[in-house]
Design a binder for these strands. Structure first.
Length: 863
RNA sequence: GCCGCUGUGGUGAAACGGUAAACACGGAGGACUUAAAAUCCUCUGCCCGUUACAGGGCUUCCCAGUUCAAGUCUGGGCAGCGGCACCA
């Protein structure tokens, strides 16, 4: 129809509608044109700085943000929208509830995704990243989120990364950063070391290449020192249980004992870690990891072994295997005998010492006792190499070993046999008793182990914050003095990875180091893992001052990472929203760094995120959307056609926020219709003088429906059930459309309820309704202020009570009818009238055994 | 293998232990239109029954249990998803 866009062209001025328009308006078919209206309000919000918060003056601080994106070359995809728009709806709701909501956004601009994009396009990251950031800012602004753009952060900006470097220096000074030669995960494709957390199923988290183990001199941060605190802190957090469990499992605290065995005919001993010392009488062999020091001594000839050749071949072969190959070998065990024997002091038996790569160098002591009677892996090893199997536990069903059924069962209960002084004891009692015994004799020592490894933070890549370390001519590391920060990322390097750290090629970096520190001094050439940059960015938001990524406190020598007053006031983040995939990466690093910063005295809180929510994943035909699969759905076409409001509402309406779901655009029409219908209902109110007609009264049922909706939408938003919130608004719209008369007050309240979901349309309608109110001189909300600054409506509980109510009648649990009664009817009256129901009477003829009345709900007869 | 989550119409989904399927999509029929789109109205879980109304039976992955009453609580299966995994 020709009127498309017509409404969009008028009404933007605050001029009153001309008289005489009323009659024609009712005949016209109005359509809402989102593209111009959304642009208009985005501009006005921007001009009025509505979403900027005065952090000092704010009275009811509410700090919320989403996990910031990395600026790769791709545009914002559905996943971003599914994360950001519901988060924004929640932030708007909180703001209307009267909180000073601080909702910033930034860019995780260092690291592999950004750098890989640069490598692919051949454009250096220092050039392409700012471009991508600019594009993404434009796109983010089109969503219409209430971001405080004055406090944007960008981790690749020197103003930011000097604080990343400052953080490293604090870690170094406090003994939490150290360099050591260790077997580390290495991705041959990305040409860099990876942290344990960044290896998924033996492959690189970023590119999927099988990861290999490499001995390298690397920088680590001592996250293991915080293992127990990271574990305990979880109990206080309002986080999804699933995420807390994942962190608990990742930390993997285990209590056990280190038992030391003398090796016959040598002065050597081997220490094995076990959590099941109760089965120690069943030990028939010992297995060492190929990297174990005892094995090394054999290889260098310090210990004489007849099997040296086989051992050497085995060790070199297994060191070449990738993580994936080790895993794929699965159940088939390999290994070689060393020819040495250990002595089990408990029963004075001689047990052979073997080498096998099913024992991991990095866990426990890198040596285990083989208990083939009660451990599947040991059993398989024993079978393969014809080693004896001894059973020492009888389970309750009389089975001496689960192994007999070819399944590994970690007995939860059972009784000891074949175990000397432990015989007859329950396995738990036996565990305690033998640990006491071993400690008394000096053969063992109770110990707690963790699965958690120290965080390997060095990367042999270009696009990251340089590690602020310099080496003196003796090779001893020193921190770059704070006054020399930012320790700039050199520009004179080829950024494409070649297996060595790109910074090592920088003449400028080496010259700079010698110039400042003297001849013979050299710089560290690794850069930091991007997860270091993102481990403290919430604090950085509080110190950011503008959209260019500059900060309030540029001087790192003052050690003020964040203004302590602001930090106390705003942290921890009240609501943090982002993907569950960060459960054991970013979310554990950020907690560790916050704890360390607290211990160093720079911040007052120990946990960064008080409440955490994960949005679900949007898939396409069941598969995760990814560029490589070519199944990424772009939001652009939908926004072009329906506008941001409709698109974000559709994403919220699709299903529960935390569930995600499979993408399909079949329902977006429903939301688009809803938006049009809302406009069609409310827009004419702004043009007519209908509301001045005092002879027409709004029906009480309309008020009642309105208040029911206020309650429903408020509760839905509080619990992030956006889908049911929207359906509540739809139900109300259905009522309003059928009503003969809708008051301006009702329309205003409806618009407020709509505001967090469809902010642009709500502002538009608010403006329209305010013009009317102003003319009518009858409203208090007459200012031309934004709807986002208006208070969230509250409901009147008395309006939720109706005069009559429907009581359902059940007989033996089956519904047999219902009855209308007055709201204030007594139990007796209600039961009496229930018995009068014609259909019910058929069933209760033979007498009633029991009568149950659930107030306001139902009557249940048992016959 | 271990840990966690999920399972409801043709579809996305609702449902303080209390009328299962709200809201929406899709579908069918109708109105308007030269026509299409858009819009509006009616119907829409399955089966029996009736000209029509009434009625009745069945139904939330499967099997038990608790309860006047179970999608919801308990136990045991099955299926799917996610995390961890040769971790001693």
């Amino acid at each position: 129809m020709a009127t498309v866009g017509r409404c969009a062209m008028k009404n933007y001025s605050t001029d009153f509608p001309k008289l005489g328009k009323v009659a024609t308006i009712q005949l016209m078919h109005f359509e809402y044109d989102p593209s111009s209206v959304e642009a208009k309000w985005q501009e006005r919000w921007n001009e009025a700085h509505v979403y900027e918060v005065d952090l000092q003056k704010a009275k009811k601080p509410y700090f919320t943000h989403v996990m910031f994106p990395y600026p790769s070359g791709d545009k914002l995809h559905i996943g971003h929208w599914f994360n950001y728009s519901p988060a924004d709806t929640f932030a708007r709701f909180k703001r209307m509830q009267g909180y000073d909501v601080f909702s910033p956004i930034g860019f995780d601009a260092f690291g592999l995704p950004a750098e890989n994009y640069a490598i692919k396009t051949g454009v250096p990251p220092q050039q392409s990243i700012p471009e991508n950031v600019r594009t993404m800012i434009t796109q983010l602004k089109r969503i219409g989120c209430m971001y405080d753009w004055n406090r944007m952060v960008n981790t690749s900006h020197p103003e930011y990364y000097k604080w990343t470097q400052w953080l490293f220096i604090q870690m170094f000074k406090n003994g939490l950063a150290y360099k050591k030669k260790a077997s580390v995960n290495f991705c041959p494709n990305c040409q860099t070391v990876l942290a344990n957390e960044q290896v998924k199923e033996g492959c690189c988290e970023r590119c999927g290449t099988p990861v290999i183990q490499k001995m390298m001199e690397q920088w680590f941060w001592k996250i293991t020192q915080y293992a127990d605190r990271l574990l305990q802190g979880l109990d206080q957090l309002d986080w999804p249980e699933k995420t807390k469990t994942m962190q608990r499992n990742w930390i993997g605290r285990k209590e056990g004992i280190d038992i030391t065995y003398a090796i016959e005919g040598t002065k050597e001993s081997v220490t094995c870690f076990t959590t099941r010392p109760d089965t120690n009488f069943g030990v028939t062999f010992i297995v060492l990891a190929p990297e174990h020091p005892f094995v090394k001594k054999i290889l260098i000839g310090e210990l004489k072994s007849d099997h040296k050749k086989e051992i050497a071949a085995y060790v070199s072969a297994s060191l070449k295997k990738t993580e994936l190959e080790r895993q794929e070998e699965g159940m088939s065990k390999t290994g070689v005998c060393t020819g040495f024997y250990a002595v089990n002091n408990l029963n004075n038996t001689k047990i052979p010492v073997w080498v096998s790569d099913y024992v991991l160098a990095g866990f426990g002591t890198g040596a285990v006792v083989g208990v083939p009677g009660h451990d599947l892996r040991d059993f398989q090893f024993a079978q393969k190499f014809k080693l004896p199997v001894v059973r020492v536990v009888v389970t309750s069903d009389g089975d001496t070993s689960a192994i007999e059924r070819e399944v590994q069962v970690q007995e939860e209960s059972g009784t000891m046999i074949n175990s000397g002084f432990l015989d007859g004891l329950d396995i738990h009692e036996a565990t305690e008793k033998i640990m006491d015994h071993l400690e008394e004799k000096g053969w063992g020592k109770r110990i707690v182990t963790y699965r958690l490894r120290d965080w390997s933070i060095g990367r042999q890549r270009y696009w990251g914050a340089p590690i602020p370390i310099i080496y003196d001519p003796e090779g001893k590391p020193h921190a770059v003095p704070e006054k020399n920060l930012p320790w700039l990322l050199p520009q004179d390097v080829e950024f494409k990875p070649k297996g060595t750290a790109p910074l090592a090629q920088s003449k400028e970096l080496f010259a700079r180091t010698e110039k400042i520190f003297g001849k013979g001094w050299t710089p560290e050439v690794d850069t930091m893992d991007t997860f270091v940059c993102s481990s403290f960015y919430s604090f950085m938001y509080l110190g950011a001052t503008n959209e260019r990524g500059e900060y309030r406190e540029p001087d790192v020598t003052k050690n003020v990472l964040v203004d302590p007053v602001l930090e106390k006031k705003w942290m921890p983040v009240a609501m943090y929203i982002g993907g569950a995939e960060h459960a054991c990466m970013h979310l554990i690093y950020a907690r560790f760094v916050t704890m360390a910063l607290k211990d160093f005295g720079f911040v007052s809180h120990e946990e960064p995120f008080k409440k955490l929510v994960h949005q679900g994943v949007i898939t396409n035909k069941g598969a995760k959307m990814s560029k490589s699969k070519g199944n990424v759905v772009s939001p652009d076409a939908f926004i072009e056609r329906h506008g941001s409001d409709v698109f974000r509402m559709y994403l919220m309406f699709m299903g529960p926020f935390t569930d995600g779901g499979d993408w399909s655009d079949t329902g977006i029409k429903g939301i688009s219709r809803f938006i049009q219908r809302v406009y069609k209902l409310i827009q004419p109110l702004g043009e007519s003088d209908k509301m001045n007609n005092k002879s027409v009264q709004e029906d009480v049922s309309v008020k009642r429906a309105l208040h029911k909706t206020i309650k429903q939408v408020t509760e839905s938003l509080e619990t992030l059930h956006f889908n049911t919130g929207i359906s509540g608004l739809m139900e109300l719209l259905n009522v309003l459309e059928k009503a003969e008369y809708v008051s301006v007050e009702t329309a205003q309240t409806f618009t407020k309820l709509l505001a967090p979901f469809a902010p642009h349309l709500a502002e538009e309608l608010w403006e329209i309704l305010n013009n009317v109110s102003f003319r009518a001189q009858s409203r208090s909300d007459t200012s031309s202020d934004f709807i986002i600054n208006k208070p969230w409506p509250s409901f009147d509980p008395s309006l939720l009570v109706t005069d009559t109510m429907t009581i359902v009648i059940q007989v033996n649990g089956k519904v047999r009818g219902d009855v209308q009664v007055a709201s204030d009817a007594s139990k007796e009256e209600i039961i009496a009238s229930a018995k009068q129901n014609e259909n019910v009477m058929k069933y209760i003829q033979n007498g009633i055994k029991k009568e149950i009345y659930v107030p306001g709900k139902l009557v249940s007869f048992v016959i």
